[in-house]
Design a protein around this nucleic acid. Sequence first.
DNA 1: TCTAAATGTCTATTGATATAGACAACCATA
DNA 2: TATGGTTGTCTATATCAATAGACATTTAGA
Lengths: 244, 244
Amino acid sequence: MAGQKIQRQTGVALWRQIADRIRTSINHGDFDETGMVPPETVLALQFGVNRHTIRSALAALAQEGIVRAVQGRGTLIERKERLSFPISRRTRFSQGIGDQVRETRSVLLASGEEAASTELAKQLKVRTGTPLIRLETLGQADHRPVSRATSWFPADRFGDIAEVYRTTGSITKAFKELGVPDYVRVVTEITATHADESDLADLQLSPGAIVLVAQALNADLDNVPVQYSISRFAADRVRFTIEN
Amino acid sequence: MAGQKIQRQTGVALWRQIADRIRTSINHGDFDETGMVPPETVLALQFGVNRHTIRSALAALAQEGIVRAVQGRGTLIERKERLSFPISRRTRFSQGIGDQVRETRSVLLASGEEAASTELAKQLKVRTGTPLIRLETLGQADHRPVSRATSWFPADRFGDIAEVYRTTGSITKAFKELGVPDYVRVVTEITATHADESDLADLQLSPGAIVLVAQALNADLDNVPVQYSISRFAADRVRFTIEN
DNA sequence: TCTAAATGTCTATTGATATAGACAACCATA
DNA sequence: TATGGTTGTCTATATCAATAGACATTTAGA
């Protein structure tokens, strides 16, 4: 770890930069031998800052539930995880990470109907203004939120998808009930940005965190678009894997 | 734009949060009609902050060369770009974005030989300690840095790759000269993190910026690993596209 | 049971961040 | 050329971020 110095006067507080770095180190397994973060005085020396600054960083990580400080002993690592999320022609949320966690769940946050914008119409290959069903969903792994997605479906084929999804908790199953036995990922676009307010709330992130944004188009086996979605993943909890 | 409020007391200064948001809006094309950012007083109202805070944000964007303030007129948008970088079985740097820019270039920053770590050995399917060639390269598009990569090659097959790369400026061409007529992408892993000091320097980023990290394995047509690389992209300049 | 090592708490000080207000300088245009 | 709208600059004040030092409290182990 350490090695690189942290930057001052950048608009990002030192304690936050250090918190991000320590979180990365934990996820990387740097402290697996002891199961503890190095002592505050050692970290202060490594990062070249005051011990109080380190304490602010560790307090932020404790707030996230990643570490837990015990007086007299040290700062214990409570949780480390970065789920590997495969992206392929057969990308599905629960299948992809199913073997990495005990339980995956998908929750419907909201749903509604709206007319296709120019951008959405282009993606789904329908006319602008075509009625679409919009689903807002939250993907969880072991009761921790991992991703939050907005999906659009052509309303003529999938008018009842919100209902079906609510009962099944799975897009794949909902598609099956609505006459789409199988579907494939056509294209995925990946970007990264800072988390906005909604991300913080839904994904239980700490402010300043990073989200990976995946915009994806799924089509049925006749290559007709059935779903366009924008998913936002907590960047410190996931990794995308593309196998070719 | 706007809509979402910004967060206070998060360790990330308001001016930086606002700068990031305005940069995103510019890249999204929100101000294309006028070619200008809204007046400072309007932005201050929208974000619910003092005008001076907006000025700090715009000053940061001006420092990046994204906007240019003109007294009496307004703040002009100088540059907006986000390159689309395709990831497929045949992923290559210059080919992928070649049609989006006038010129792509790849520069050799450094090279050396090192013994394979456990992790590298696993990826390249060689024994730990096997000699590897390491190349540090910088990818440019229209003279602006886009990515910075560290690549490892088995030294027995590619001992001279640094020399060949220096003259050709292309991994693909270097492989060809060294007896690998073609190669394919086996797997790509994508994560996102805050830019470190080296990123800032090499990619000309502003502190606190985000980098997309792609770890990739390439193999020859006999499926023998030939290259493992870790590339870091300026997140506000690129987008990954996975076509299935 | 003593001691070393670790986290917890407190005070004080400095610099960066953010707000507030006022006014100057400049530009486009009526 | 007068005016409204815009960026540029200055002063003042309050809060957050970071440093510095001292000492208390807890734990594990000699």
